[in-house]
C-alpha cells in the first residue's frame, strides 16, 4: 500500500505536469478572451473581430471542403485496398504492401517540391486538387496499413459463409465486413481529418489565391500581416484549433488508440 505522503507527492507531480501541458493553451485562451489591445472589443467580441479582420470564414470553408474530400476518398480507398491485402492472396502481394509501407514514413517535405513543379507544368497549381490529392496519397498509405490489420483479424468463417451464400466480393466487403469494422473506420476517419485539417506545408506550397487558403495557412498569413497586438491572433488561433479539439473531446478513445498504434503522418 502506498503511504499518504507518497500519494500527495504523486498528485503534486501530476498537477505540475498537467499545468505545464496546459500553460501555452491557457496563454492563448486568456489572451483571446481578454480585452483587445485596441480596446474596442473584449471577450467573445474578439472572435467576431478576428473572424472579420482575418477572413477566417473563407479559410474554414476551404479547410472544410479539403478535409471532407480527403477523408471520404482516402477512407473508402483504404477500406478497399486493406480488404485486398487483408483477405485475399495474389501475386506481388508483399512487394505491393511494402511499397505502401514506404509511404507511411515518407516525409511530405521530400515529395512536395517535385510535386509543385510537375503540377505547375500541368497547370494544376493553386487548385483544390493540388491541395487535396497529395494528402489523399499520404493518408491512403497509412489507411491501407490500418484497414489491412483489421481485416486480417476479422473472422474467416463469416466471409466463407457469405461466399457460400453466393455473395460477391463487393457485397461481402460492404455488407459483411465493414459494418462490424465501424470502430476501426471511425479511428481512421478522425486521424485523417486531424492530419488534413492541421496540414500546413502542402497548402503553403500549392496555394496562392486567398480563396483556397486552409485555416492553418490563413492563420500563418494573419500572423504575418496583423501585428497590432496579440488578442485577435489568439482568437484566430482558437478558431483554427477548435474543430479538431471538439472532435478529440468526444472521440478521445479513437485519437489515442490511432496515434499510439504508430500513426506517424502529421
Amino acid at each position: 500500500m502506498i503511504s499518504r505522503g507518497e500519494r500527495v507527492a504523486n498528485y503534486v507531480i501530476l498537477s505540475v505536469f498537467a499545468a505545464f501541458a496546459l500553460f501555452p493553451i491557457v496563454t492563448i485562451l486568456s489572451a483571446a478572451l481578454g480585452p483587445a489591445d485596441s480596446g474596442e472589443t473584449s471577450g467573445l467580441g474578439n472572435f467576431a473581430a478576428a473572424w472579420e479582420v482575418g477572413h477566417f470564414g473563407t479559410y474554414l470553408r476551404s479547410s472544410l471542403a479539403v478535409s471532407a474530400f480527403v477523408v471520404v476518398v482516402s477512407v473508402v480507398l483504404s477500406i478497399m485496398s486493406g480488404y485486398a491485402f487483408g483477405t485475399m492472396r495474389f501475386r506481388g502481394q508483399s512487394v505491393l504492401f511494402y511499397l505502401f509501407m514506404l509511404g507511411i514514413m515518407m516525409p511530405s517535405e521530400a515529395v512536395a517540391v517535385p510535386l509543385y513543379f510537375d503540377l505547375r507544368s500541368l497547370g494544376l497549381i493553386d487548385t483544390f486538387w493540388s491541395v487535396a490529392l497529395p494528402q489523399v496519397a499520404l493518408s491512403v498509405a497509412f489507411g491501407t496499413f490500418w484497414m489491412r490489420a483489421y481485416f486480417r483479424a476479422s473472422s474467416r468463417a463469416i466471409v466463407e459463409a457469405a461466399r457460400i451464400d453466393g455473395a460477391s466480393t463487393w457485397r461481402i466487403l460492404w455488407r459483411v465486413l465493414v459494418p462490424p469494422a465501424r470502430p476501426a473506420v471511425v479511428t481512421l476517419t478522425v486521424l485523417v481529418f486531424m492530419w488534413t485539417w492541421n496540414e500546413f506545408l502542402i497548402p503553403l506550397i500549392m496555394v496562392t489565391s486567398e480563396s483556397l487558403r486552409t485555416a492553418p495557412l490563413g492563420l500563418a498569413f494573419f500572423q504575418g500581416q496583423y501585428t497590432s497586438g496579440f488578442t485577435l491572433l489568439a482568437a484566430g488561433s482558437v478558431i483554427v484549433a477548435t474543430p479538431v479539439v471538439v472532435f478529440y473531446l468526444f472521440l478521445q478513445r479513437h485519437f489515442v488508440r490511432g496515434l499510439l498504434q504508430g500513426a506517424v503522418r502529421e
Binding site: S78, F85, F100, V111, V136, L138, V140
Partner: peptide, 24 residues
C-alpha cells in the same frame, strides 16, 4: 489467389503512385 484483388487495390494505388511514388 484472387485476381479481383488488383481491382480493389487499383484506385488507392493509382493516387498513391501518382502523388507519392512518382514524386519521390
Amino acid at each position: 489467389p484472387r485476381r479481383v484483388a488488383y481491382l480493389y487495390l487499383l484506385p488507392a494505388f493509382a493516387v498513391y503512385a501518382a502523388f507519392l511514388l512518382y514524386p519521390i
